[in-house]
Computed example of a mutant assay.
Amino acid sequence: MTATATREAPASAPADPPATRHRERRDLTGYWLLLPGALWLLVFFVVPFYSLVATSLYDPNGSVLEGFDMTWAFGNYATALQEYWRPLVRSLLYGAVATAICLVLGYVLAYAIAFKAGRWKNLMLILVIAPFFTSFLVRTLSWKLLLRDDGVVVNTLQFLHVLGSDGRLLATPVAVVAGLVYNFLPFMVLPLYASIDKIDHRLIEAAGDLYSRPVVGFLKVTWPLSLPGVVSGTLLTFIPAVGDYINAQLLGSPGQRMIGNVIQNLFTDAGDYPVAGALSVILMLLILAMVLLYVRRAGTEELL
């Protein structure tokens, strides 16, 4: 007796459940939402950065009229550092000093707004950002008027014998740093306020209940909890302050030129595009390295 084998028809694949299809569409939604930002970064950051790096490697013997050839001239970086290391160091120094002053002033102001302002909190925040309602150039020119040799500030300091009879503030490092502090102070205050305002005031009161002095309570409670704002504020202040050139141009002298003034002059007046591009790349890489080191040392996981 022979048995006949019967073949079963292959079962059709089960259709994807609606929940799976919905989850797949939801996963793709995030990528679609990222697309406009990615395109913006590609057009306005990646492409210009590539162009800047390429410019820094042009033949230094070229000119604006005759054009520049791509010769991969890495020697432009050595030339830039050798000729312009002083303005670069000066810019880092001015930016660091201005950031430190902004941190002290901004922390006090942000603490007062968060814990002491009460119903005046919103008004004080508006006053902090009020300078942004006018042009950066106008604000800097106003400092030039205040610090001029026959201005009220110099006359008052001379009357108090802080400055000599022939002393001056304009065209000095003091004027440049003062302009940087004034123009970038809101960038420090706002992140600090956002961080300090989230601190539960009961934690500070608990430190006092445990017989902690106000200074110790601040160092053990308030300061650690406000570190994300400190890091954000210092970065938002230091980075643009180092690359600024308006304050040094209007409030300083050739002896206070910052790296931004040098780069502007090389691009617009001297026409030395390769060295100007090399300086720009050096400045960006140097700031990037300092920022990464600073954030790592600060240990604020919220910013990583």
Rank of each mutant, 00 (worst) to 15 (best):
T2L: 14
A3T: 13
A5E: 11
A9G: 05
P18T: 10
R21Y: 07
R21K: 12
R23C: 02
R25Q: 09
R26C: 05
D27T: 06
D27Q: 14
L28Y: 12
L35H: 06
L35C: 07
L41P: 05
L42W: 14
V43T: 13
F44P: 09
V46I: 15
P48V: 03
V53N: 05
T55F: 05
L57N: 09
P60T: 06
N61K: 13
N61I: 03
S63D: 03
L65M: 05
F68N: 01
A73T: 09
F74K: 02
Y77T: 07
A80D: 01
A80V: 02
L81R: 10
L81F: 08
R86V: 14
R86G: 07
V89N: 05
R90E: 04
G95C: 06
A96I: 07
A96K: 03
V97G: 01
L103M: 14
A114Y: 04
A114I: 04
K116L: 12
K121T: 05
N122D: 15
L123P: 11
L125K: 15
I126S: 14
I126N: 14
V128D: 13
I129V: 15
S135P: 08
R139D: 08
R139I: 01
T140Q: 07
L141W: 15
W143H: 08
D149T: 15
F159N: 11
F159D: 07
H161S: 14
H161E: 10
H161Q: 11
G164W: 01
T172Y: 06
A178T: 13
V181K: 09
N183S: 11
F184R: 04
L185R: 13
M188W: 08
V189I: 15
L190F: 05
L190S: 12
L190W: 04
L192D: 00
L192T: 03
I196K: 10
D197V: 14
K198Y: 02
I199V: 15
I199C: 14
L203C: 11
A206K: 02
D209F: 04
L210N: 07
Y211I: 12
R213D: 12
G217L: 12
F218A: 12
T222Y: 11
G229P: 11
L236M: 14
T237H: 11
F238G: 10
I239H: 10
A241R: 06
N247M: 13
A248G: 13
L251D: 11
P254C: 11
Q256I: 00
R257P: 00
I259N: 02
G260S: 04
G260Q: 01
D269A: 09
D269F: 05
D269P: 00
Y273C: 03
V275L: 02
S280T: 10
L286M: 02
A289Q: 00
V291I: 12
L293S: 12
R296F: 02
R297A: 07
R297N: 02
A298E: 06
G299L: 01
G299C: 03
